[in-house]
Amino acid sequence: RRKRFSRTTFRCVLVGAKGAGKSALMSGLVGRPYDTPLPEGATTAAGCMMLPEISEGGDAAAEAVRGGSPAALLLSEVDVDAGSGAESIAAAAGLESVDCAAFIFDASSAESYRVAQAALGRVAEWSARTGAELPCMMVAAKDDLGMSEELAARSSGVCASLGLEPPVQASVRAGDTSAVYQRLLAAAADPGAAVPETETSRAARARREQLLAYAKYGATAMGVLAVGVLFYRLVSSSSGGSSSGDSRGGENSKADDGRPIEDAAALRVASASLRQYK
């Protein structure tokens, strides 16, 4: 997933309960009427292109322009229910091979939202546990049917707790799907975007930051120790040199301040290393 910036084709899976509006959303994203079944071949409508099926799953593809270059979203869908576990969702949706996952719910149905929320939470934990870093988002489909203020607040709150933007509201019947496409493409194309934050991922990040801090302090301590050792050698060498300097007639080369050149240079190198670690 870290190499996605240079790609122009991205795989996205739509996850949700039956009747949430996944198939209609796929139709809308490729420019077809919401109540028209997706065809098996290729066709063009409303400035978007549906590519031929590329897998047994019956994927559809919406094609548009991203940054001056063609970009295609390969879409597939999977039905889940409130009891679907993370591993079963991951297997059914092929999460290890997709670039983002959208959790779809019927904006007028609290039960549909409950299923999508549960699936999102389980997939977010799966992503953190496996290190998949899968971008996720929520979509409130059938927005023309209306969403209650309570459900809007609940869904936005859940997304905020995971560090995600509020659900995208979409109505295929009203032809309002552009925001969904843009969010899907942005999440799929950017390897660091829209990855849910869970307790597991926060704990892992805290451990990494702690290890980095320990490494920094350790490097600083080693630098201080190195300077101390070299300073001790310098003092010892200078003391020894002053007692024997007269008998040797000044044979040793010394720096301007009277210190042996080798020790003075070593001290400068150690001091520079210490400043680098601070």
Rank of each mutant, 00 (worst) to 15 (best):
R259W: 07
L212N: 13
S247W: 12
T177E: 03
V139Y: 01
A221M: 12
V78D: 00
S236P: 00
R2E: 15
A153Y: 00
T198R: 06
S108K: 11
D106S: 05
K18M: 11
D246N: 11
G57I: 09
L211F: 05
A170Y: 02
P167R: 06
A46N: 10
G68I: 10
V229G: 05
E53K: 14
V13K: 04
T43G: 12
M50G: 15
E209W: 02
S201A: 07
L145W: 08
R32E: 11
A91V: 11
S161P: 01
A64N: 07
A141W: 03
F105H: 12
L73F: 01
G21L: 05
Y113G: 04
A102R: 01
C159Q: 03
V227N: 05
V65C: 09
G146Q: 06
F105R: 00
D263L: 14
G245C: 09
A46K: 08
S242W: 14
V172L: 02
E53G: 13
G163N: 10
S27Y: 00
P37M: 04
P39T: 09
Q210M: 11
D144Y: 01
R154P: 00
E133W: 06
A188T: 10
N252Y: 10
A42Y: 02
G250H: 06
M222K: 15
D143V: 00
S127N: 06
A61Q: 14
Y277K: 12
S161A: 15
E197G: 05
A116P: 04
A255H: 09
A265K: 14
A42K: 11
F5V: 06
G131V: 03
P70A: 13
S236E: 08
G31C: 08
A140V: 05
Q276R: 14
D246I: 10
Y232Q: 09
L74V: 15
G31Q: 10
P37S: 07
T9G: 02
F103K: 07
S148P: 04
D81L: 05
M222G: 11
Y232S: 15
E56N: 15
D143S: 12
G19V: 03
A266R: 14
P52G: 06
A132I: 06
L38K: 07
D143N: 10
N252T: 13
A141F: 08
Y217L: 15
A187Q: 03
F105G: 01
E87N: 10
Y181G: 03
A203W: 05
S6A: 12
T200G: 01
E77F: 03
G16P: 04
R202G: 01
A194M: 12
R259F: 09
A91T: 14
F5H: 13
K3W: 11
A132K: 15
R205N: 04
A265F: 10
R122V: 08
A189G: 05
A107K: 00
S88R: 10
Y217P: 00
K254Q: 11
A141K: 04
G250A: 08
P52M: 04
A266I: 03
L234G: 09
G163A: 08
G245K: 07
K142S: 06
L14Y: 03
D256N: 10
A255N: 13
S6N: 08
S88A: 15
T200I: 12
L25Q: 04
V195G: 00
G41Q: 13
A270P: 04
R259S: 08
A255M: 12
P260N: 14
E197V: 14
V195N: 04
I261F: 14
P33L: 02
P260Q: 09
L234M: 13
R66G: 02
